[in-house]
Design a protein around this nucleic acid. Structure first.
Length: 573
RNA sequence: GCCCUCGUAGCUCAGCGGAUAGAGCGCCGGCCUCCGGAGCCGGGUGCGCAGGUUCGAGUCCUGCCGGGGGCGCCA
């Protein structure tokens, strides 16, 4: 199905081509009409011609009679386009019968690897993991919906020197107690105590170092203890993921340890290519364009002076594996902004080594911090980072309080379910709706508000639609009429509905779920205006089916849109 | 010191080189015999500063100011 914007763009492009091959129409939404083409001015400038004359020529060439009811040149050469009601209505009929709601499948489906969440074994998940996990989740959902093959990879921290300390601590408190602590999700205590011992006890430090050696040399008992830590932690992560409602499963876990066996190959191959340089005892690659504070070349340390492998080695191995074994055409890293330089260096080295050959892309989807009311990194009263589970539990609790009493007809278990959807949805939406590169301030009252650009507002709009269907004893129509858009609110809602595909496209282009959030908010706003001015159940018989269609379609777009963000939409709330 | 990033209304945030820079919250004023008032309509002072590129700059470039981050063996 041809989406409205795509049709317009096609016509305009052809018309611009007829004046100058390849000229960009610069088609944009307009406040003065439905769309405007801004490309005339630069084109006329290049050709040294009169803008309004060029505009007229383009309008004739575009042949928009079946799409637009009004096409006019205004200002110094803008082309304003007003879509005809008939065309909008026709597009809506198509969208309504389309299971994909007008969203086209990608014309060039690719294999994409998305690296996100990556918690550390035996370490608490905090709000820092929240952003990576839900932004990554939303992107995976949208990429999949767009028809791409998405490989989710959860690169958990399951290897490295801290494991000497963690295993020794496990032995000190006893395996049974350790398993218990990890099982009930008390990872903070476990990790902190291990660290305290490491800091205070020279003997413990010595044992830890020795344990690292045992681990790396494959000592069976040490490996068994290591597995206990990993398995227990993974179970805990699963609990959090299930609370959060994200797609990640155990099958997506590709931890750092997965690459152990090929790290030496990475180093060997870098050496064979001649990229490896020994510096201060470490084996490094110096990619061009990176300097340290003295202006000297900055190394990517692949193998440390103690012969251990740095995380750069693991990251390089992962790139090679993802391109080579998985056939990735694009690798997406949903990782905090501070790692920008490290990732760029890894990408640069991988390119030099030929492990990231030209058409293959590597993208850093960076994000900012979650701040508390004091504008600093969100922390609990005691000053430690907030546990993700605590955050989610509180969200559900607050949502439950908000729902209680609002709708007495809800049964208790149903209310619990709704509180779950609202609370978790509110947290996710608050995060996703902020442009990801910015820091954002965490504020319970705002994110759980039922007004404004919030999760609950969108869920509410959806629930109202369902309510109409319940009250009117309506079911989803089996065939769709051509909608009547005589009322301005009907027309505006219709146009908003047709923007769904474009919103998803923009989101993926910029790897920024906030684009889809903005769209859904606009759609919900357009719906509420429609809802206020256009009665549905009490509508005259000739427009009733049309309004039912608009409601039904809006409900589906909202539900699908929220779903692509990883947010559930209850039928009542 | 160098590099990255952010700076938009009282607050929280949108703005893909285009016309008079938009929402939400809060504040003020309207609207309901009406499908869920958790609503709708109206009301406004703002792009950190200074240059530059452009027919046109919140958007691109340079410098400065301010917040955050990074800058060799933690991941």
């Amino acid at each position: 199905m041809d989406e409205l914007r795509a049709v317009l763009l096609g016509r305009m492009k052809a018309a611009f081509d007829s004046v100058e091959e390849g000229a960009d129409p610069v088609l944009r939404p307009s406040e003065r009409a439905d769309f405007q083409a801004n490309g005339v001015l630069p084109l006329a400038k290049r050709l040294g011609r009169n803008p309004s004359e060029v505009a007229s020529q383009i309008i004739v060439a575009a042949e928009l009679d079946d799409v637009c009811e009004r096409v006019e040149v205004s200002g110094r050469g803008f082309i304003n386009l007003t879509i005809s009601e008939r065309f909008i209505a026709g597009q809506l009929s198509e969208q309504a019968t389309d299971e994909r709601l007008g969203v086209p499948m990608a014309s060039d489906p690719e294999v994409l690897v998305v690296d996100y969440s990556h918690p550390n074994v035996a370490k608490e998940m905090h709000v820092g993991h929240l952003r990576s996990t839900i932004i990554g989740d939303a992107l995976c959902r949208m990429l999949g919906f767009a028809g791409h093959t998405v490989v989710r990879e959860n690169h958990i921290g399951d290897w490295g020197t801290p494991f000497g300390m963690l295993i020794e601590h496990l032995l000190d408190i006893g395996e049974e107690k350790a398993v218990h602590e990890l099982s009930v999700g008390d990872l903070d205590t476990f990790y902190r105590q291990a660290h305290v011992s490491f800091d205070d006890d020279e003997q413990f430090r010595e044992r830890s170092r020795h344990r690292v050696v045992l681990l790396q040399s494959g000592d069976p008992e040490t490996l068994r203890l290591w597995r206990v830590l990993v398995e227990r932690s993974v179970r805990y992560f699963d609990d959090v993921y299930s609370k959060l409602g994200v797609l990640l499963t155990d099958d997506d876990i590709v931890g750092e340890s997965f690459y152990n066996d090929i790290l030496s190959d990475v180093v060997r191959d870098l050496e064979a290519i001649g990229l490896l340089v020994e510096s201060e005892g470490a084996r490094c690659v110096f990619p061009l364009g990176f300097t340290n504070r003295d202006g000297d070349p900055l190394p990517l340390i692949v193998q440390k002076s103690d012969q251990g492998f740095g995380y750069a080695a693991t990251d390089l191995a992962a790139i090679r594996d993802r391109v080579g074994r998985l056939g990735a055409k694009c690798i997406v890293y949903v990782v905090g902004a501070p790692q920008a330089q490290h990732l760029e260096m890894c990408f640069a080295v991988a390119r030099m080594a030929g492990w990231l050959p030209e058409p293959v892309k590597a993208v850093h989807v960076a994000f900012g911090n979650v701040l508390g009311a004091d504008r600093k990194m969100l922390r609990s009263r005691s000053g430690v980072p907030v546990k993700l589970v605590d955050l989610l539990d509180e969200a559900v609790q607050r949502a439950d309080a908000a729902v209680t009493g609002r709708d007495p007809s809800l049964a208790h278990d149903e209310r619990d379910r709704v509180a779950q959807m609202l609370g978790v949805g509110a947290v996710k939406y608050a995060d996703l709706s902020t442009e990801r590169t910015r820091d954002y301030t965490f504020d319970w009252d705002r994110m759980l508000a039922f007004e404004g650009n919030t999760g609950p507002y969108l869920q509410y709009a959806h629930a109202r639609i369902r309510s109409i269907f319940r009250r009117g004893n309506l079911s989803a129509p089996s065939s769709y009429p051509t909608p009547n858009l005589a009322e301005p609110a009907e027309r505006a809602l219709g146009l908003a509905l047709l923007g769904f595909a474009g919103a998803i496209e923009a989101t993926l282009e910029q790897w920024s779920p906030s684009r889809l959030c903005s769209y859904l908010f606009e759609l919900a706003t357009a719906f509420t205006t429609f809802y206020e001015t256009c009665p549905v159940l009490k509508a005259p018989p000739d427009v009733l089916p049309s309004r039912v269609l608009l409601c039904e379609l809006t409900g589906r777009v909202l539900e699908r849109g929220l779903d692509l963000l990883g947010i559930q939409a209850p039928d009542q709330m």
